[in-house]
Amino acid sequence: MLDLLKDLWAFMKVRKKFWLAPIIIVLLLLGGLIVLTQGSAVAPFIYTLF
């Protein structure tokens, strides 16, 4: 996972594609929210104390 992030950062740095960073962040958040809020197969295994 860390390697993937490093590779992504290196790619953005070399190709000067920094505009990809916010898109990647937003996509990660989107994925997380879909998992947590849309009753996905993963959500039931997350035990949140609140």
């Binding site: 920094f18 958040l29 989107l30 929210l33 849309q38």
Partner: peptide, 29 residues
């Protein structure tokens, strides 16, 4: 970058948050 991030976050908030939906029950898991 800030503009894209801002647009993305506002979109996520409006789609998944309770700002436009008073019956946003996901927040109770």
């Amino acid at each position: 970058n800030i503009a894209i991030l801002g647009f993305g976050i506002v979109s996520l908030e409006l789609i998944f948050g309770g700002w436009l939906n008073s019956q946003w029950l996901a927040r109770l898991n």
